[in-house]
Design a binder for these strands. Structure first.
Lengths: 101, 101
DNA sequence: AAAGAGGTTATCACAAATGATAACTGCGTC
DNA sequence: GACGCAGTTATCATTTGTGATAACCTCTTT
């Protein structure tokens, strides 16, 4: 065998992609939404008040927080939301060493 | 004074928003892009190889990584990118206790 | 039971991110 | 200098997130 180069790397990558595509988008999104709700509630705000601060409508806040929503928000949307309650966003990339069955 | 309620909270929030709007979008985006590039390079991949894994084109990868780009990527875009190099995304909300002049 | 508060869902219009193609730069190599 | 490699930039088409409005649901209160 040659040393691990692009071809093998790509296969591994695609394996990850394939297995986790739907799962990831759901879980990542799910976690974020839970955090959004928690942040807002900790600040003691309603969706409507949140909407007022962010100069939008409560329905949009609801959609953003909604777990069943399968939209993938923009980074700036999350940043704005966080800023509205006095937080900032930190994006961390963690190695994905999970065992695949 | 009454206890701190929505009105005062909103004023503070808007202050944060106003001061940091442009700054935040730049800095947050800037940091992320630097991380993206670092991740890809650590994996020893070119933009073109990255594009192949993600089944897109190298120009799109370049745009995503480009610091001068003022787009705000979708969460799923970052997640996919990270997954391609064996990482997952963790989004942390940190209190923004910075001193404002 | 009527009214209000808090949240959800549907829909439409609009803005913005992404996909795709092509042309270009800079750089090293032959 | 021609060639290939890595990355950039511009442009257009398409997809998708977001803004806005309205109707609805569930509690709670009166």
């Amino acid at each position: 065998m040659t040393r691990p180069t692009f071809k093998s790397f790509k296969e591994e990558a695609l394996k990850r992609e394939g297995v986790k595509k739907s799962y990831d988008k759901l879980s990542a999104g799910y976690e974020v939404r839970k955090q959004l709700i928690a942040l807002r509630q900790k600040a003691g705000l309603t969706q409507e008040q949140m909407a007022e601060i962010l100069q939008t409508n409560k329905s949009n806040i609801s959609r953003l927080e909604s777990v069943s929503s399968n939209i993938s928000p923009k980074l700036s949307t999350l940043t704005d939301y966080a800023a509205a309650v006095g937080y900032k966003l930190k994006i961390v990339f963690v190695p994905d060493n999970e065992v695949r069955i």
